[in-house]
Design a binder for these strands. Structure first.
Lengths: 218, 218
DNA sequence: TCTTTCCTGACATTAAGCTGAAAGTCATAT
DNA sequence: ATATGACTTTCAGCTTAATGTCAGGAAAGA
């Protein structure tokens, strides 16, 4: 895989570069948004690692530009813990995953591996679950030809089930999947979103296992 | 295997870390409950080694939290000899094994090996018991293709038998398995649940040993 | 037979989950 | 700036399922 790393903290940038290189990927490391744009124009990347605090602007802007240009390259955002609201913005803007700084390099490797499995393996994975057709890379769902729109949160929740079909997933696991570390949820948000997903995608898409969690039948 | 070591005695922590690392496992060593929680949130562990006397509380509390969150990660408790009553609490809270300090490092290795055989060996254990197929990780039971739903309590009880097939298990042991330390049961609840399990899973699944307990034939 | 232990249907109570709607956030257009 | 609309979160009332208890009957052992 060829990876573009956009990060202006030199020490962290080097560490990430070393790690990824050691795993056999090709890394281009740039420190500004403008350099990143240049690189993205001239080269095809399989993955972008994007810091949000950059000298010439916010990484979010770059992400938005990338998506507006119709590029589907997966983007993983690297963000500091105190900018959790960025997470939402990023999800809305089309990020694929998040890492909260400081993070473990092995954690980064795992996410990269996940992305490479999800995308590189089959460039346009079309899942079929029941009557639903799901295009993971484009965040599109359709049933019988008509497309269904999910909001960022709804998609994030749905994704948790897609990744582990048939598996029982507890509410706290779902919270971990939806919310950045440290975010406290003090209501039945998960239940509400389960309800919305069912309404949009079909009542029998998600099975309740009372007291334990939810499961999407394979 | 990736192992989380929660231990605040520096000397002991180092010794354990060295030993485990030498055996090829990955160890994350933290010294407080709050750090342990952080790590558990961000990373998947195959095993937790948990000291009970920690600067910011008792390891038991952490263990209870882990189990309440529905996580089944195996936990081995490291405790001093004079806190044996903790042993009871720990077992009730869902610990998998115990080591009394001071312990031999080779003893620790043996326990870790046992756990790794039990869990990591078959990541998706599919048990076959009589006509039943049991997928432990997915909490699924099926007989002749049709799936059977168990409630949380029923599953917990069934689990006790799965873990020790062929073994005679007394009613009080089953109560210990089902109920948190301190919960008093003043009725024939266990009998009722045995009855319910038999109804759902088959009459001859569980054998009554009058006056002593129950046994699941292997 | 008598006693003890166990089984199981029924039921009140409690807990978990569902969902419409209000309130709060944020992004974009005016 | 302000308004608008989309999305998110919380709340409250409701529905449904699980739980623990009891009681009467069945089975086992003496």
């Amino acid at each position: 895989m060829r990876i573009l790393l956009v990060e202006d903290t030199v020490g962290l940038g080097e560490a990430i570069q070393d790690q990824i290189t050691a795993e056999g990927h090709a890394v281009d490391w740039v420190e500004t948004i403008s350099h990143a744009e240049t690189s993205l124009h001239s080269t095809h990347y399989d993955l972008v690692l994007l810091d949000l605090m950059l000298p010439d602007g916010s990484g979010i802007e770059l992400l938005i530009k990338i998506r507006k240009a119709g590029k589907t390259v997966p983007v993983i955002i690297l963000t500091a813990r105190d900018q959790i609201s960025d997470r939402i913005k990023g999800l809305n803007a089309g990020a694929d995953d998040y890492l909260i700084k400081p993070f473990d390099l092995s954690e980064l490797s795992a996410r990269i591996a996940a992305v490479s499995r999800r995308y590189a393996g089959n460039p346009n994975p079309l899942l079929q679950i029941g009557p639903l057709e799901i295009d993971l890379s484009k965040h599109l769902i359709s049933r019988a030809g008509t497309s269904i729109n999910l909001t960022a949160r709804e998609w994030a929740l749905f994704e948790a089930f897609i990744q582990r079909p048939g598996t029982l997933i507890s509410k706290s696991q779902l919270e971990d999947h939806l919310y950045a570390f440290g975010t406290e949820i003090e209501s039945n948000t998960i239940e509400v979103y389960i309800s919305r997903l069912r309404k949009k995608l079909g009542r029998d898409l998600l099975e309740t296992v009372r007291g334990l969690g939810y499961r999407m039948p394979c």
